[in-house]
């Protein structure tokens, strides 16, 4: 199994993570690393536990077992805003904006509540402007978030995540429901973020995009890690093909 090239201490280290809801085990001993500047694709069939994994890492759900270390610090059980302040943010599968507020306010809220050391470097307004410009949202900054098209709502999600000044961005099916042009735009933005040194965990159904963007791919199924490796290597693994990729991607390659 191929691993990523040796890198310094990982940005995120998930070890033996489990999450049990009542009697249902959603995550069972999952472990992987994300290094600075790296894009890790996370794939798996529906119900594999991808979203639960994000919920646990981002602090929306407490873990049932295992450890999560971010920048060398254990973050299991911290509040979402504390984890956000440390620099790990996520987006939601269906755009989950502050629906009644303007685009500006959506992004500005995130700028306002950055930790003090980041707020000293750049004013909240400047941070908001930069995030909006990066995502191409300057023209609709005064519109109410819920009135935007799905594509623009996803851009606002990314802008908002950016405004928090993240080291790690977790995108949860950010391309779902988008047309080809919007998808392409978002992928460009993510590549831009990667160039700025931001690590990304990329959960996506569109396997082609995953393979294109990711440095490394982690496959989970039924709450367990099934495989991990460089995209092409993972795509060829028989067990991955059988549980997830089926015939369609293999044929497409």
């Amino acid at each position: 199994m191929a691993t990523a090239s040796p890198l310094p201490a990982p940005l995120l280290r998930v070890e033996n993570l489990s999450k049990v809801f009542g009697g249902v085990t959603a995550l069972n001993g999952v472990g992987f690393d994300v290094h600075p500047g790296e894009v890790v694709g996370l794939i798996g069939p529906n119900g594999a536990g991808k979203t639960t994994l994000f919920n646990v890492i981002s602090g929306l759900l407490p873990p049932s077992g295992g450890t999560i270390a971010f920048c060398g610090r254990s973050i299991g059980g911290l509040r979402p805003d504390e984890i956000c302040a440390l620099g790990a943010v996520r987006t939601f599968q269906s755009a989950s904006l502050l629906s009644g507020m303007t685009v500006w306010d959506n992004v500005h809220v995130a700028s306002l509540f950055r930790p003090a050391e980041r707020a000293r470097v750049e004013s909240a307004a400047a941070c908001t402007r930069r995030a909006l410009a990066f995502c191409g949202l300057e023209d609709c900054r005064d519109e109410i978030a819920e009135t935007l098209s799905i594509g623009d709502q996803k851009r606002v999600e990314i802008a908002r995540a950016m405004a928090t000044g993240p080291k790690l961005l977790m995108t949860d099916e950010i391309l779902a429901g988008l047309n080809a042009a919007d998808s392409e735009g978002i992928l460009h933005m993510l590549q831009g973020l990667k160039r700025e040194g931001i690590s990304i965990i990329f959960v996506e159904h569109d396997v082609r995009s995953v393979m294109r963007l990711s440095d490394r791919v982690v496959v989970i199924a039924q709450g367990r890690k099934l495989a991990e490796g460089e995209p092409d290597a993972v795509a060829r693994m028989p067990e991955v093909i059988s549980v997830y990729l089926g015939g369609r991607y293999a044929q497409g390659v």
Binding site: P80, L98, M101, H108, F113, P115, A163, T164
Partner: peptide, 25 residues
């Protein structure tokens, strides 16, 4: 105000507000 934005953010979407760095409690 900043405080007002935080309140409105929590009203609009509790999870997103938290993930924008707002302390819900």
């Amino acid at each position: 105000t900043e405080f007002g934005r935080a309140i409105r953010a929590c009203r609009d979407n509790r999870e997103s507000a938290q993930l924008s760095g707002i302390n819900l409690g």
